[in-house]
Simulated scan of single mutants.
Amino acid sequence: MQYLTKELFFPNVNEADEEGIVAIGGDLSPERLLLAYQSGIFPWFNEGEPILWWSPEWRMVLFLDDIIISKSMRNILNRNIFKVTFNQNFEAVIANCQKIKREGQNGTWITNEMIEAYCKLHELGKAKSVEVWQDEELVGGLYGVDLGHVFCGESMFSKVSNASKVAFIALVNKLKNEHYRLLDCQVYNSHLESLGCVEINRDDFIYILKSE
Score class of each variant (00 low, 15 high):
M1R: 08
M1I: 06
Y3M: 13
K6S: 15
E7S: 12
E7V: 12
L8V: 14
P11H: 14
N12D: 14
N14Q: 11
A16K: 06
D17P: 09
D17N: 15
G20F: 10
V22K: 03
A23Y: 09
I24E: 11
G26C: 12
G26E: 07
S29V: 09
L34P: 08
Y37H: 04
F42V: 07
P43R: 02
P43Q: 09
E47I: 10
E47C: 03
G48L: 08
P50S: 09
L52E: 11
W53Y: 07
E57C: 08
W58V: 03
R59Y: 04
V61S: 00
V61T: 01
L62E: 01
L62M: 04
F63N: 12
I67L: 11
I67A: 01
S70R: 09
K71Y: 05
S72N: 15
N75I: 08
I76K: 00
N78K: 13
K83A: 07
T85S: 15
N87T: 03
N89P: 03
N89F: 02
F90H: 02
F90M: 04
V93G: 09
V93W: 04
K101S: 10
N106A: 11
W109C: 08
W109E: 06
M114R: 13
M114G: 02
I115E: 12
Y118F: 13
E123H: 07
G125L: 13
A127E: 09
S129K: 03
V130N: 05
E131A: 06
V132Q: 04
Q134R: 11
G140C: 14
G141K: 05
G141C: 08
L142N: 01
G144P: 08
V145L: 14
V145G: 13
G148T: 01
H149R: 13
V150C: 03
E154D: 12
E154M: 14
S155E: 05
S155P: 05
S158A: 13
S164V: 02
F168H: 02
F168S: 00
I169R: 06
I169N: 03
K176H: 07
K176C: 04
K176W: 04
Y180M: 08
L182Y: 00
L182A: 05
L182M: 09
L183D: 01
C185H: 00
Y188W: 14
S190T: 06
L192T: 00
L192C: 05
E193N: 06
V198L: 05
N201P: 10
N201F: 02
D204I: 03
